[in-house]
Simulated assay, not measured.
Amino acid sequence: MKALAFALALTAAGTLPVAAAEQVAKSPPSAPYEQVSKLVKLPDFIPGIGQLFVDPKTLPAGPFLAYDHDGALVSTIYMIPLKDLNPDKHFDDLAAPGGNVDHVSIYYNAGHPGVETPHTHIVLWHVSAKDEARVAK
């Protein structure tokens, strides 16, 4: 139930101004974002997620910007360590740099390079559920 409330809060938090969304609409986004595959040992494109960029200062949580094969932004992803999902920790003012959020997905990840500890992926999709296929392969 907390995860659902968290996702709803993210969606309701609003979006950044249009100018900010335009700066990240196409890959590569402007600084301070860097390509994740150049920071840690991950492929350039991860099926189901896409090509990731992040401001290294925001690790491990992000936001990570995810792009399809054509370089269009499809989602903003937060990777929240499970140890941080507790009553003492708050995640306020989480932004969706890509603008409007169509829907939210939340799922567990056991860990990977860059965020090695078990964590939750909170995916703010900027495209419809049908268009998620743009990063499926």
Rank of each mutant, 00 (worst) to 15 (best):
P28H: 04
P28D: 05
P28L: 06
S30I: 10
S30Y: 01
P32N: 07
P32I: 07
Y33K: 08
V36Q: 04
V36C: 06
K38I: 01
V40I: 10
V40A: 01
K41W: 00
L42D: 02
P43A: 14
D44K: 10
F45H: 13
I46P: 00
I46T: 13
P47M: 07
P47A: 11
P47C: 09
P47W: 09
I49H: 01
L52Q: 14
F53T: 01
F53K: 03
V54A: 05
V54M: 12
D55P: 06
L59N: 02
G62A: 07
A66L: 08
D68A: 09
H69L: 07
G71E: 07
A72E: 14
A72L: 12
V74P: 00
V74Y: 02
V74G: 02
I77S: 04
Y78F: 15
Y78P: 09
M79F: 03
M79D: 05
I80M: 04
P81T: 03
P81D: 09
L82S: 09
D84K: 12
L85W: 14
L85H: 06
P87Q: 06
P87A: 06
K89E: 12
K89A: 13
H90P: 00
D92G: 02
D92T: 04
D93Y: 06
A95V: 14
A96H: 07
P97M: 14
P97S: 13
G98K: 14
G99D: 09
G99V: 09
N100Y: 00
N100V: 02
V101S: 05
H103A: 10
V104G: 05
S105E: 15
I106H: 02
I106K: 04
Y107E: 11
Y108M: 10
Y108F: 15
N109H: 15
A110D: 12
H112Q: 13
G114C: 07
V115N: 13
E116L: 08
E116P: 15
E116D: 14
H119D: 03
T120L: 15
H121P: 00
W125I: 06
H126W: 06
A129M: 08
A129S: 14
K130S: 12
K130F: 01
